[in-house]
Design a binder for these strands. Sequence first.
DNA 1: GAGGTCAATGTAAGCGCTTACATATTTTCA
DNA 2: TGAAAATATGTAAGCGCTTACATTGACCTC
Lengths: 350, 350
Amino acid sequence: MSRKNKESEHNLPTLADVATRAGVSTATVSRCLNSPGQVQQGTRDRVMAAVQDLGYSPNFGARALAARRTKTIGAIIPTMENAIFARAIQAFQEELHKSGVTLLVSSSSYRQDVEEDQIRTLVARGADGLLLIGHDRSPAIYQFLANRGVPVLICWAYDPSVARLSIGFDNRRAMAGLAAEVLALGHRNIGIISAEFEGNDRARARVSGVQDAMRAQGLDPTTADLIETPYSIENGANALREMMQNSPRPSAVICGNDVLAVGAVQMARALGLAVPGDVSITGFDDIELARVVDPPLTTVHVPHRDMGRQAARLLVDMVAGHPARDSVLLETNLCLRGTLGPPPGSVADS
Amino acid sequence: MSRKNKESEHNLPTLADVATRAGVSTATVSRCLNSPGQVQQGTRDRVMAAVQDLGYSPNFGARALAARRTKTIGAIIPTMENAIFARAIQAFQEELHKSGVTLLVSSSSYRQDVEEDQIRTLVARGADGLLLIGHDRSPAIYQFLANRGVPVLICWAYDPSVARLSIGFDNRRAMAGLAAEVLALGHRNIGIISAEFEGNDRARARVSGVQDAMRAQGLDPTTADLIETPYSIENGANALREMMQNSPRPSAVICGNDVLAVGAVQMARALGLAVPGDVSITGFDDIELARVVDPPLTTVHVPHRDMGRQAARLLVDMVAGHPARDSVLLETNLCLRGTLGPPPGSVADS
DNA sequence: GAGGTCAATGTAAGCGCTTACATATTTTCA
DNA sequence: TGAAAATATGTAAGCGCTTACATTGACCTC
């Protein structure tokens, strides 16, 4: 009951073809490909020559099926559309490549349901491990992953209160540091433009950081003007416009990331407001955009490349059965640039 | 000689487990999953319940092996690090998703050897089709793809002189249009900052476009100052600095893309040159960055999202055996913004 | 009511690989 | 020099699916 080979069909060379041509068994060919050390030089040469001649390349599905691993790691990022995740992912991929691991990337558009789908898809495709951004997701999906025995590394967040292994920075503390700087200049009317909280623990932590800093100064955090909006330049711009209609008007607007901040800066200028003369604006991430906008953005530098690289090493180890003992905390640092100044009418200013 | 099941091992439910639990054969379960119409309602319900109960999800490798297709399409882009390709890929993925196709993305860092590796990897992984950027690559690799019967769609380029199916725009004509605009303002000393030519037909085509426009004005294209450098803001900046040391100094610098142009604008300002008062600068692509820089960049708008979306549809059709008849030409349009003005000392200027 | 059609399901043969175990060959050293 | 140890290769059993073909039974049609 053999499947008919329609003449039209492509018939690629298989391991068996290579074996025949090289005059060895399929096992030997397989070994040449996977652990060449086990095969004698002469035999190996013969096999490799056959591989070349035939233009053989192994069938991934068969290999995955037989070996029960895929040398594949999956990553799901919220978006590819701006540079926030791109640099980290690029570094992640480069590092994985060194270990012969392939990366599969999907983007979830910041939607939890989409992300869950993608997690399932990646696992079904045999991802040996997964890189995810932030901790926020349903217990059910973590349970699923645990059942499947798929190691997961969380990045972009470091939160010692969560047991899961992660590599990242302390969003809350980093933002608190920036906010402290803002408050130290004398700003008292603070605006916050954040990403939407739902499903985004980083965004919440950053806002908490601002609130921490306010409390530390004896200010009431609830007096801060808060707008939640999806990350985009345009949304940042709109949020700033809205915020500037309030009274009292914030003299400093702290944004959840650089993309929002860039939009805010542009809108401020469009409204005829000087930055930082009339309003100070800060970002978070220090992506390329931060230096392109005029004036350059005061922001928090996140070691994206480093995070990506280290994440790759950790995850490769985890897949190999050497789970890291502890989460990794990376340091961020403040980039004080042109968009932050003293509030209008302050002593330093007059 | 059965493989021992070490007790420690995860043993996921298989199709057979589902079949047993539902009291049907594996074939029926398979049909429920792949072509539910063929199965009676009652049976199907029973099977689906079993799938739920067991938390079954199909093994990708086995499926690919047996079905000889993967519902996967691969794409290789030169870089993820800036936004040039991100928008198109995002749209590409969203559209593929509608057809139940998974996207695998790799980036080649603009290196041909890396790209060939990745092509082979993706094919080995069973990609049913491939999306590639530009035409430039070795005949050997095209031959390989043809042997394997893997359909390929080229994007980012439209060149009727090449037989391969593509979707894109006419880089040469688009750039010629922009250059004509520059020349019409009276610029005669032209600088060109391009990506490196090797392996990048788009870059070459764009420079040819500038030369076409010069010839059309009776100018000698070889008088243009040309610098080739990899795409990055920093490289754009360095190239501009270098160019400004020449004499005569260009009054307009046409850049191969927005990333280079943004770097050029920033360097011009750092050098104390007014843009466009002292030097005009143009880009290509119209990515977000183009509007963020001050003044906003004169550039060529490329319909990235549309290209991505249409590419997905075409490729899905090709994989299904309905190859498109012709390459698709998309229109670009000029975005005349702040960085382009008349040359210094021109009548309009004085 | 015999023969034919059609729909629903079952049977079982692979898909192309890896790897445990068996076998053959060479090396080592008491 | 011979037995044990190490090394190289072969044998063949799956890995978890899909699907061609076989089977079954319900329903028509003349």
